[in-house]
Amino acid sequence: MRADENVNYHLARLLILISQFGSPDSKGLDGITKLAKLDFLLRYPSFTDRLLPSRNAAWPLGCEPSYDELESIESHSIRYKYGPWDNRYYPLLGRLVGYGLAKTSRGRDGVVIHLTEVGALLAYQLGQSEEWQVVAGRSEMLRSKFDLQGNRLRKMIYEALPEAAESLS
């Protein structure tokens, strides 16, 4: 991870996203692939917008993507390995674990991610803040409409959004 990147921003976003799937009393978020694909949908709402009809879903009120999000250069990002910044998931997840905000265990698809009580409380508090409400609302929608196994989620994204998979070879 480059030193000039806003690590706290990425940690907060992942914490909120994981909270929807990996609360302390849940089955957890199973797999880095699933985490990466969900985060891809969270970070790039222009792609998510195109998948919503297939899941009989709509953006939660107040969480719709802005014009800038739909038209920015980043909204045309192409996938690389797990996502646009795949090599950062492991160190960021390691930080969450190191800070006592998350814990991991072995699961069917590799690592299962859970938040600790402290991590769940922090994710809740962040999600209630004005700055993070949209991320929290979008994360909740992803849980309700895109809670699929990582490989199934990957396949759905690549079939519906072929330009997101062009860089595979």
Results as ranks from 00 to 15, higher is better:
M1N: 06
R2N: 12
D4M: 02
E5R: 11
N6P: 03
N6K: 08
V7E: 07
V7C: 10
N8S: 13
Y9F: 15
H10I: 10
L11W: 10
R13I: 05
L15V: 08
L15R: 09
I16T: 10
L17H: 06
I18P: 07
I18Q: 09
S19P: 04
Q20H: 11
G22N: 08
P24M: 08
D25N: 14
K27D: 00
K27G: 08
K27S: 06
L29E: 09
L29G: 07
I32L: 12
T33H: 03
K34H: 09
L35Q: 13
K37F: 00
L38D: 10
L38G: 11
F40A: 02
L41H: 11
L41T: 10
R43K: 06
Y44R: 10
S46N: 14
S46C: 10
S46G: 12
T48P: 00
D49N: 13
D49S: 12
R50T: 08
R50S: 09
L52M: 11
P53R: 09
P53E: 10
S54A: 14
R55K: 13
N56K: 11
A57V: 01
A58H: 06
A58F: 03
W59E: 01
W59L: 05
L61S: 02
G62E: 10
S66V: 13
S66G: 04
D68C: 08
E69S: 00
E69K: 02
E69G: 00
L70P: 03
S72M: 01
I73N: 13
E74D: 14
H76E: 15
S77W: 04
S77L: 04
Y80D: 03
K81S: 00
Y82M: 08
G83S: 15
D86P: 05
R88Q: 14
R88E: 15
Y89L: 13
Y89V: 05
Y90K: 10
Y90W: 03
Y90V: 05
L92A: 04
G94H: 05
R95W: 08
R95K: 11
L96E: 10
V97L: 07
Y99D: 14
Y99I: 01
L101R: 04
A102C: 14
K103H: 11
T104S: 12
S105C: 04
R106A: 08
R106C: 01
R106I: 14
G107I: 14
R108D: 11
R108Q: 13
D109K: 15
V112H: 05
I113E: 09
H114T: 04
H114P: 04
T116W: 06
E117C: 00
V118P: 00
A120W: 08
A120D: 13
L122Q: 14
Q125D: 12
L126K: 06
L126F: 02
G127E: 03
Q128V: 08
S129N: 05
E130M: 04
E131M: 07
W132C: 03
V134Q: 12
V135T: 15
R138K: 05
R138E: 09
S139F: 06
S139Y: 05
L142T: 01
R143E: 02
K145L: 09
K145A: 15
F146T: 02
L148N: 02
Q149H: 11
N151H: 09
R152C: 04
K155M: 03
Y158G: 10
E159V: 13
A160C: 03
L161F: 04
P162S: 11
A164P: 03
A164G: 03
L168F: 04
